[in-house]
């Protein structure tokens, strides 16, 4: 992270790869701060907001989405070349997204199962996070990202300090907010303990378990949690594997849990067996 402001009025771009655009929209959702954002940042490329285009260079580039098509491989390298400070936003860009569940399945079977003319579809066998291909300077997790974290990152960029993005468990946020633990009081399986905070514990606040969209936190003891699910909940292995097989399934150690327990669905609705995903390509 920079220790001085990136630029006086940084040139900002927002681009997307394989994604739903929801994370970009979070920027537009900063309604109260929007004028201030535009005052401090020169938004040169943001298709969701403006038809103006720029080929760069960018002081700050927000990258949404995963690398999922052959054309993405070159494009991300080229964008990195034109960017000083690259920020990945959202579960797709930081973890490969929900589309990374195909990494456990048969790519060709998916294509022919879903599309009537699979030959028109150009896609890679695996959906991968941006950091697997280029160096990333900062990441905002979540599906979608949290507006407060985005604002904190923007503020840190203007002042040149480290953004205060915690990697503690979601549980900490539940406890601070007085949310009664859904796992203890209702027996609902919850990934909050192994998931990075930042969402404001939104799912437990509404009485459901965290499904890990912010991805694994530092030293996430997914194996320990799995053992607890197996012993205390008497749940079948695959059902536990499915808990980890969400938006950030391809991030370790969730990835190992999905591989070990099964739980990533294939095109036919069956579940994969405990097989390693296809070998990693690109920048490891």
């Amino acid at each position: 992270m920079a220790h001085a402001p990136v630029a006086a009025r940084p040139r900002v771009g927002v681009v997307k790869f394989a994604s739903c655009d929801g994370c970009q929209l979070t920027l537009l959702d900063l309604e109260d701060e929007l004028l201030s954002v535009v005052e401090h940042f020169d938004i040169v490329d943001f298709p969701e907001a403006t038809s103006a285009r720029s080929a760069g260079p960018y002081d700050v580039l927000f990258v949404e989405g995963s690398v999922s098509e052959p054309a993405h491989l070159e494009r991300i390298v080229e964008l990195r070349r034109r960017t000083r400070f690259l920020v990945t936003i959202g579960a797709c860009a930081t973890a490969g997204g929900i589309q990374a569940l195909r990494n456990w399945g048969d790519h060709d079977a998916f294509r022919s199962g879903v599309y009537s003319n699979p030959e028109w579809v150009s896609s890679l066998a695996r959906s991968t996070p941006i950091a697997e291909h280029v160096t990333v300077d900062a990441e905002l997790r979540g599906c979608p990202i949290d507006p407060n974290q985005l604002l904190e990152l923007l503020t840190a960029l203007t002042t040149g300090r480290r953004p205060q993005l915690r990697d503690e468990a979601v549980c900490m946020e539940c406890k601070r907010r007085g949310v009664v633990c859904v796992m203890v009081s209702k027996g609902i399986p919850c990934l909050g303990q192994v998931t990075q905070t930042g969402c404001g514990a939104i799912c437990p606040r509404f009485g459901r378990g965290c499904y890990g969209c912010f991805g694994p936190r530092e030293q996430a003891n997914a194996a320990g949690l799995t053992r607890h699910f197996q012993m205390a909940g008497d749940r079948p292995r695959e059902e536990i594997g499915r808990l980890f097989a969400g938006f950030t399934a391809y991030s370790e150690p969730f990835r190992s849990m999905v591989t070990e327990l099964g739980g990533a669905r294939t095109a036919r609705g069956a579940t994969t067996t405990a097989a390693e995903p296809a070998p990693r390509g690109g920048k490891a």
Partner: peptide, 13 residues
């Protein structure tokens, strides 16, 4: 430590 998830619930409770 193999069982503990280090989630911090104990300390905040």
């Amino acid at each position: 430590a193999e069982r503990c998830i280090t989630c911090g619930n104990c300390t905040l409770a």
